[in-house]
């Protein structure tokens, strides 16, 4: 029992060493903390704020745990012992009150950020947004550019500093569409359409992830997201429009059959209504999620 009082210090020490070491190993490719897009940047600021705020509760808990267990160890006969002391109104008020204040602050931040960073809300920048329709298939991502009349597999390209309006559905098990460096994820579900608004602030190639379990090909169902200059993007669009690969309902039906590790491919789009037809496959009962409150609060 002699070592008992050193215990919390040991636990704390082990924690610090391990957590510190782990962040070192993570190095500088912690994508959520090194954002390349407007939404991801805002989300990182929020994470930092919430961590700092929670330290107001964590720090006292750790310090009190160490202090109290050290001082009131049974072997310390100098410590005061009052076995019947079980109530103190001021202390109770303090620890109902302080967390309450912390949570109140966080609640206000939560309410605001939930609306400001709502994935369904369009990013208000003075620039024409680019609409990209996304279909999660088994096991690849189909990106449809209705205005440009092209489609791609497993690669999405867009100009930098341009608001991106993603519309998402699935013709497969539910999935989740996530580009960590650009911002949060949203589910893609069959028979309905969800929305996600992002904006890349830097040119670069980012990792795109299928974040929800979707069956055997789940782990390899990644895509690349490429933000380029407007000129580069337009050149790429023009090239893709010239491609001999055409996407019509027949080609789509073939594409929708399960397959793994599909290479990046571009198509010219023959069917303007492809996205809606994919949703309509699931019958007349399909839902369109909150299509009316785009950008309004």
């Amino acid at each position: 029992m002699r070592q008992g009082h050193k215990l919390p210090v040991f636990i704390l020490l082990a924690m610090t060493v391990i957590i510190g070491g782990v962040f070192m190993l993570g190095g500088n490719n912690i994508s959520v903390l090194s954002p390349k897009g407007f939404i991801a940047f805002e989300q990182r600021q929020l994470i930092m704020f919430a961590v700092l705020l929670s330290l107001f509760v964590i720090a006292p808990v750790f310090l009190l745990t160490i202090g109290i267990t050290w001082h009131y160890r049974a072997s310390n006969k100098n410590a005061k012992y009052s076995p019947e002391w079980d109530n103190n109104r001021y202390l109770e008020v303090a620890w109902w009150g302080i967390p309450l204040i912390v949570i109140l602050i966080l609640s206000v931040v939560t309410w605001r950020s939930s609306h400001d960073l709502d994935p369904m809300r369009a990013i208000s920048v003075n620039k024409k947004p680019l609409t990209i329709q996304v279909v999660a298939l088994q096991w690849k991502w189909l990106f449809i550019y209705p205005e440009q009349g092209i489609a791609t597999i497993n690669q999405v390209r867009f100009p930098v500093d341009t608001p991106l309006n993603f519309e998402l559905t699935a013709d497969a098990p539910m999935n989740s569409f996530w580009i960590p460096e650009l911002g949060g994820q949203i589910y893609a579900m069959s028979g309905m359409s969800t929305r996600l608004h992002l904006l890349a602030t830097q040119i670069g190639t980012f990792r795109g992830v299928s974040a929800n379990l979707s069956g055997m090909g789940h782990a390899s169902m990644n895509f690349t997201a490429q933000a380029s200059s407007l000129d580069d993007f337009e050149r790429w669009v023009a090239d893709s429009q010239q491609t001999r690969q055409r996407l019509d309902m027949n080609a789509y039906a073939h594409l929708a059959t399960p397959s793994l590790n599909n290479p990046v491919t571009s198509y010219s789009l023959l069917n303007d209504n492809l996205y809606q037809s994919v949703i309509n496959k699931f019958g007349p009962h399909t839902h369109k999620l909150n299509s009316s409150n785009d950008g309004s609060m």
Partner: peptide, 14 residues
């Protein structure tokens, strides 16, 4: 608590 903020959860969910 971090994840209970929806805007943060979008970045760490799943």
């Amino acid at each position: 608590v971090l994840m209970s903020v929806p805007a943060i959860d979008f970045q760490v969910h799943n």
